[in-house]
Amino acid sequence: MFDCVDPKSLEGLTWLACYLTTGKHMAFYASFATVLFLLALTAPLAMLFGFGGALASRSAVLPLRLFGKGYIAMVRGIPDIVFFLFMPIAIDQLLETVRHKLLCPDVVEPIRRGNDFVVCTAAKLPLGAADQWVHELYGFLLASLSFAIVFGAFAGNTLYGAMQAVPRAQLETASAYGMTQRQIFWRILMPQMWVYALPGLSNLWQILIKATPLLFLLGVEDIVYWARELGGAKTSAFSYPHPDWRLYYFLFLLIFYLMLTQLSERVFGWLIRKTDHGALSAHAARAGS
């Protein structure tokens, strides 16, 4: 489209068009896909964890119930950022420790030596010789898993509350009709709990969206990373010198997030109206709001 060979000779709109299509800017645009990919990966996983947590906290087995209650309660008292900083490195060290024990059984020195964490070369994750993209993917997966665990706990709270909100009399009626626990769960509890859970899950999705910039803290090259990188003042040594433009880049991110949250609010609003067709709707709307 434009001839961007010699940026110094460009002016005005042409300069801007060339500037906005540099390789680094392409990486910046691609990092928006990283954010969306994280959302797509984390949301179902968090639902799964949340479901597990909610079920566990309703379990009849005491240790399982305690585990479930502890899991879904942990986000109430402890800031989520603590988990985001803690989880990736903790999971990484746990995995490496397990691999170290399995792959290098003959190493006798302890893994923790003073302020060091040493595992044998074969136990490293990813292996030292691996390509750069493997390291990046591994980091991204660890971050996604941390997100999923934390948001699983949030989802667990919502789903647990929704399960409790299904009228108890209905479950007892089902039991009186001779249904087994399994039948009661699948035929009575599950179909109805979603109506109660949806407003909470809608909020949760918004929170998940608003938590995605924290990827930056986990060392992933996400939109915040690129906004800082590209926006910083560039001297004339660069092809496209400009003063500190980070304000505009962050303004752009802000607008991106506002649009994303606004869009999902519309979609969930539509979904809630749709599922609200039912005898319980008035009650459900109140319980969830």
Partner: peptide, 10 residues
């Protein structure tokens, strides 16, 4: 509607 993290940076 926007993340607190971005608000801080901005």
């Amino acid at each position: 509607g926007s993340p607190l993290f971005i608000q801080f940076f901005l």
